[in-house]
Nucleic acid binder design. Structure first.
Lengths: 185, 185
DNA sequence: AAGCCTATATATAACAA
DNA sequence: TTTGTTATATATAGGCT
């Protein structure tokens, strides 16, 4: 919809590609927001720019919730999350291996977080819309000292699910697991 | 962009809301695809219709990959996945509780899958584009017999990561954990 | 619910600064 | 680079089937 009809094909000129991304990113973001509001639906959008910059959007600001809703879809058409062609017992056994893997994944995220995180406070969510833009290059490496200092800070209770029962686990990985758990029983 | 300028506000008439969703869903899907191709970028889009129908899109067909890239972002602006304000030891302890939770989550998905899954084969991914549409209502309830019969079927190796080392765990929960693990060490 | 139509509203490609 | 302008291409609201 510009001066010329466009062929849908990778833009080779990197400058032009970046400019196009920037403009179209805004357009699709607007569309996603309008769709969410007009139709009162869950919409999640994640985009990485050619330079690695992240732009994300989600209805009510929780990509995790929408992704979980996606993951928990009991339909193989959704994707390849789950292969039902295994016996129950094997599944449980293998689940334990996933369990281990997930644990290490959590620790990994934890560590990379501790290493890279500054002192900034996460912004509040003023509306139903969340738009986050993050530049990889903006994440400055910090010293071991500052990483250690993170551990000194007082733990802050999560306000994200104020109506929930307090659980023994901390808010490390929110991913709305608590919310999902309610559904799962 | 129709006969009338539209106010961005929830459409109260449910029929019209559904129609609008359907049309705009196609539009944003096209935009997402064009963005991904033109700018050669990772884009992930998840939409639930007012009726609960899922429509999803992802560059190269892997929402999980893009979500993982999102999750693994070491930046608190991305969301509230991780609270660094806890001591290391507590984190590990709590990680074990997440571990347990994740295990039960896997089993839940497994069970709901076994109960609801039919005999259909997941479609191949012909292009870089993945568009999946799933209707909750289309998932017909199956009898215990048919649920049992699922366990009889022969296990099929995942072809999603053909170049990977074979791991002891099965392909229950692909979520590209294996792919992620390579990055993590 | 899906398609088609067509008048309009929007998005944006190519420029310009 | 980013931002603004403008001619055009697209998307889509309201109808109709």
């Amino acid at each position: 919809m510009g001066r010329k009809k466009l062929t849908v094909r990778k833009i080779e000129n990197s400058t032009f590609r970046q400019v196009t991304f920037s403009k179209r990113k805004d357009g699709i973001l607007k569309k996603a927001n309008e769709l969410a509001i007009l139709c009162d639906t869950d919409v999640s959008l994640i985009m990485f720019s050619p330079a690695g910059r992240l732009t994300s959007f989600a209805t009510d600001g929780r990509i995790e919730d929408i992704f979980l809703r996606f993951v928990d879809r009991p339909d193989e058409l959704r994707g390849g999350y789950y292969d039902p062609n295994v016996e129950k017992i094997n599944s449980v056994t293998e689940a334990e291996e996933y369990q281990q893997f997930l644990t290490s994944a959590i620790q990994h995220i934890e560590l990379s977080k501790a290493k890279l995180l500054g002192d900034r406070i996460a912004p509040e969510n003023p509306t139903r819309i969340e738009v986050a833009e993050v530049d990889m290059e903006e994440v400055a490496p910090v010293t071991d000292e500052s990483a250690d200092s993170i551990r000194e800070r007082k733990s802050v209770g999560s306000k994200e699910h104020p109506d929930e029962t307090c659980l023994p686990m901390g808010p490390h990985l929110s991913l709305s697991f608590i919310h999902a758990q309610k559904t799962w029983k």
